[in-house]
């Protein structure tokens, strides 16, 4: 997948501080891999309703590519940590600026009504349909844990099972849902 916004060169060489050798970084791969992670992190921090999310995420990933090209990444940490640091700083910077204007920080992320995003809405409906077909013992765990937002221990107490068993049921529900949705 070629990214038209990604100017040449498509790769840079960095000195790996730990290994003492030179390492090739594929910028396109980095762009593809970390864009979704950066977007997720930004939306989680600023809220999915925030109209600035996409712009901030794009700005961060462009900034990362520029820094890599300028050789500002010297391999002292992992590339993931390098991008995480840039992302966190930009988010803090955004919140500070907004706070000055709005006099309060944005609310932490809440779960969105994916009404406007057709793809997300369809996906949510598919998952919801699959949850309805789940065995009641799995459905009730999802209901109490995610919908009612009870803690693992509270769910365990309500259902008379161990907290570990709650996690196992949640994980198994997800496996079943994946199978059902794939069919």
């Amino acid at each position: 997948m070629k990214n038209p916004n990604l100017p040449t060169p498509a790769s840079v060489y960095i000195m790996n501080a730990a290994m003492g050798n030179e390492k090739k970084l594929d910028l396109e791969q980095i762009y593809v891999k970390y864009r979704s992670i950066v977007c997720f992190r930004v939306k989680k921090s600023l809220g999915v309703y925030n109209p600035d999310c996409d712009d901030i995420a794009n700005e961060i990933i462009t900034n990362v590519i520029e820094k890599l090209k300028r050789g500002e990444f010297r391999g002292e940490s992992s590339i993931g940590t390098f991008i995480y640091t840039i992302t966190s700083r930009r988010i803090i910077d955004y919140i500070r600026k907004k706070s000055k204007v709005l006099k309060h920080v944005p609310e932490p992320a809440s779960y969105p009504d994916p009404h406007e995003q057709v793809e997300n809405k369809e996906r949510a409906e598919t998952i919801a349909g699959a949850i309805k077909r789940l065995n009641p013992k799995y459905r009730e765990v999802l209901y109490l844990y995610y919908y009612k937002e009870l803690s693992r221990e509270e769910v365990a107490q309500k259902l008379g099972i161990s907290p570990r068993r709650v996690s196992e049921r949640v994980n198994y529900s997800q496996k079943l849902l994946k199978k059902m949705i794939r069919k």
């Binding site: 997720f40 969105p112 809405k121 919801a128 949850i131 459905r139 999802l142 209901y143 919908y147 997800q174």
Partner: peptide
């Protein structure tokens, strides 16, 4: 985490209907 996020989003969005 993305998979789990989709599940939670679906539950939050369609929970009333599902449950």
């Amino acid at each position: 985490m993305v998979e789990r996020d989709e599940l939670i989003t679906a539950i939050k969005y369609k929970g009333q209907e599902i449950f």
